[in-house]
Design a protein around this nucleic acid. Structure first.
Length: 413
DNA sequence: ATCCGGATAT
DNA sequence: ATATCCGGAT
């Protein structure tokens, strides 16, 4: 990542004294009791660092803590994780979000066990770690530095916030040119010795002092030469392009029950939303604007009636709303003239569950349908014929044994 | 209601 | 180079 063409905005003296100032601060004021920290041991555990770093991607320390404890309890070694069933891993991860991380973690555990069986140890190089699923440049650097006590550089969100402020870097951090500049600066500042301590100190600084809002500058070991602080513009950094407004999508969540009160669950495809986790069957609803009174209404649409090529731009989005399993269920319900109905225990229950994702809001309306024995058997067979993973479980058992995303838990509640 | 975030698929 | 993925914090 070194780029000798990048000119730093800070003086050589400031660059050279950055690490010692930060390390002195960390030694006295940093957190040293996080369960995955390995800097106080002579024999760091790379499995612990790898697992925690993957969990800490996009997720805060306080959220990760209980998940990490449960993973370490159930999967104390990488071999335990590698040999676990995916459904067990999914159930442990459920609620933590970004489920591709869990799939990569499980895949990565198997890759790591293969490396260990071949070489006798965890990967020992940056490239070796980047070859593991779910491990990118920053996570690999963190593992090298903190999990192996070798040399490694990190440049995650905390580091980017600290560095854009300290060096007054005005570039949009979502652009690759700015990413390159920040990596070069991080590398320039990271001491060859103690890169692991430096990485922990940077993350701690970003998380506890150099926070996005109201940073604690009076406590900061870098405030004397922080260029953003000198301008009183700390909160102007990091610079990031504005996000686009999110569109809304609407679905029914089908609570299809058999005569025993068990609910039909589908395992979602590995890619896409909630990949590999279990969900109620969803039924897309087209939202149509009613210009007459300026209000909007929702209208049930029948997937089988759609003509694929007629409205090209809409059609692709529309098709993508359904998994194969959901298309089978939708077609089966149509064929048998079955319609799910609102639950409506009270008027207040009418409101759909709102679930916000990166690029759209999703409104999920629970709909109930009870099948007799013959019907539930027929539907089960139709899905099994297509090799769909299904489960009939009541709400409590589903929560306890399946990996359910947060939106499903909300619906059950 | 808006913002935050690392790896990967495309 | 850009879009995608989740739940929590503010």
């Amino acid at each position: 990542m070194t780029d000798n063409n990048i000119a730093f905005t800070q003086t050589k003296d400031h660059l050279d004294t950055f690490a010692p100032r930060l390390l002195d601060w960390f030694a006295i004021n940093g957190r040293h009791d996080l369960p995955w920290q390995q800097h106080l041991t002579d024999t760091p555990n790379p499995y612990i660092v790898w697992l925690s770093e993957v969990m800490l991607q996009q997720t805060q320390v306080t959220t990760v803590l209980p998940y990490f404890a449960r993973f370490m309890d159930s999967f104390p070694t990488v071999q335990d994780l590698a040999t676990a069933e995916w459904n067990t891993v999914a159930e442990h991860w459920a609620g933590l979000g970004y489920y591709a991380r869990a799939r990569n973690l499980h895949k990565g555990a198997k890759q790591l066990v293969a490396v260990i069986n071949e070489t006798g140890d965890f990967p020992q190089t940056l490239a070796g770690w980047e070859a593991i699923a779910g491990v990118g440049p920053s996570t690999a650097g963190a593992i090298m530095a903190m999990g192996l006590h070798r040399y490694g550089v990190i440049c995650d969100g905390n580091v980017k916030r600290v560095l854009t402020r300290w060096a007054a870097i005005e570039g949009d951090i979502t652009k690759s040119a700015t990413t390159k500049e920040l990596w070069a600066l991080a590398e320039r500042l990271t001491p060859i010795e103690n890169s692991g301590l430096f990485a922990q100190a940077m993350m701690d600084m970003g998380a506890t002092l150099c926070t996005r809002r109201k940073p604690a500058c009076p406590l900061c070991p870098l405030q004397n030469d922080c260029l953003a602080h000198a301008q009183n513009r700390e909160e102007d950094y990091p610079v990031k392009a504005k996000k686009q407004p999110k569109p809304s999508k609407f679905s029914n969540a089908l609570l299809i029950q058999n005569v025993d009160g068990e609910i039909l669950w589908l395992q979602r495809p590995d890619s896409g939303i909630w990949g590999g986790l279990w969900s109620l069957p969803l039924e897309f609803i087209e939202k149509v604007s009613d210009n007459v009174k300026g209000k909007t209404t929702t209208k049930q649409t029948d997937i089988l009636d759609e003509k694929p090529l007629e409205v090209a731009s809409n059609e692709k989005v529309y098709e993508a709303e359904f998994t194969t399993a959901e298309q089978i269920i939708n077609a089966w319900l149509n064929k048998n003239n079955l319609v799910a109905t609102p639950i409506n225990k009270t008027l207040l229950d009418d409101a759909p569950i709102k679930h916000s994702l990166t690029h759209f809001h999703w409104y999920l309306t629970p709909q109930s349908l009870i099948l007799n024995n013959e019907q539930s058997q027929a539907l089960t067979e139709a899905l099994q014929a297509a090799e769909i993973n299904i489960n009939w479980l009541n709400a409590a058992d589903a929560q306890a044994t399946l990996g359910l995303p947060r939106a499903m838990v909300k619906i059950l509640e």
